[in-house]
Design a protein around this nucleic acid. Sequence first.
DNA 1: AGCACA
Length: 446
Amino acid sequence: MASVSSQPQFRYTQPPSKVLHLRNLPWECTEEELIELGKPFGKVVNTKCNVGANKNQAFIEFADLNQAIAMISYYASSSEPAQVRGKTVYLQYSNRQEIVNNKTTADVAGNVLLVTIEGNDARLVSIDVLHLVFSAFGFVHKITTFEKTAGFQALVQFSDAETASSAKNALDGRCIPSYLLPEQMGPCTLRITYSAHTDLSVKFQSHRSRDYTNPYLPVAQSAIDGSGQLAVGVDGKKLEPESNVLLASIENMQYAVTLDVLHMVFSAFGPVQKIAMFDKNGGVQALIQYPDIQTAVVAKESLEGHCIYDGGFCKLHLSYSRHTDLSIKVNNDRSRDYTLQNPAMANTQPSILGQQPGPATSQYGGPGQYPPVSGQTMMQQPTAGWGPVPGGPQSMPMQMQSNPYMSQAPGPYQMGPGMMQGPSPGGLPPHHATGRPPYGGPGPAQ
DNA sequence: AGCACA
């Protein structure tokens, strides 16, 4: 009755192979257990575990066919079945002749994790947020971040593979909690595999790499803040990947935000060297380049979360760019290099706008001062001035300055150092604290 | 308990 012409379905009909197929394995059987099982019969040259939908199958490949035959023969006549952790394992010849591509480093557990951050804003995830997230599982020794075709990735080094495994198991496929991210950011999913690395090489503390084990490691220039202090701490406390280039995204852009508007807004804090605008994720973003980091820091601290126009319109979100020098190919309505037409102005010459073509010329065609940062000045904008953001993080320093109630307080000096950078040698005076216009120093240019 | 695409 039984036809012998059909595909072999029973183990007795499988032709011998040096690859054995195992089933009914315990959950997450390890390679070591498979090797132990096969070792009495010959040399195990390859294995693959966690095969199949239930992850309870595996393959063992012997160096020689006779070794596979020996194992099958033994258990075919043995009163004791093959077992792993006390669980009976069923063996048969595999219908494959070799195990393909098994255990190539990537899924061998190690102390270093390769983390891919997925999401539109993945590259805005700071190394500090990553540190915070992974520190929940144990001491994080080092983190490096980098950009690959796979996206924004990080290597996270733990003491040992056990700690790394617990972090991987808990975090793989999960999103970074939104409260750790800037509010406009979309979800960021973590994809985690083991890295083949065991010890990362971190030469500097910087916005893209950290060594939390070495307090004496030199700090990269890009990670030093305006007061010359470390913006990074080996304890991971106060950390900002500061840059002289700001990335601005504009939320709720009910009104057109032009290059000139941005230039005026950001010039309040110092000379703007370059601006590049572009569309991203259906919104508008811009990169604004200052000559130095401290100016960018002040601008970011002052403007973050605030709106260009009253009513919550055109809310600014600022982060530090990884750029340090923008490449402006052409001056147009989306990008401009303000240093080209008058190189001197980057340091001293405030009358930028008067030399620019375009509609903004009329705004500051006169005295050539950087616009003082006050509500009044901002009100010159088409519809409104700077408005406090409803429910925003804090009120604007410049509004505090013009607030009559504030005059009773001992001035802006009560504001913590976090609100603005203190004057540093050759740096930007805290204009919105003192009431002086920025760059109103000796010999204001006319 | 019955053959893998990472």
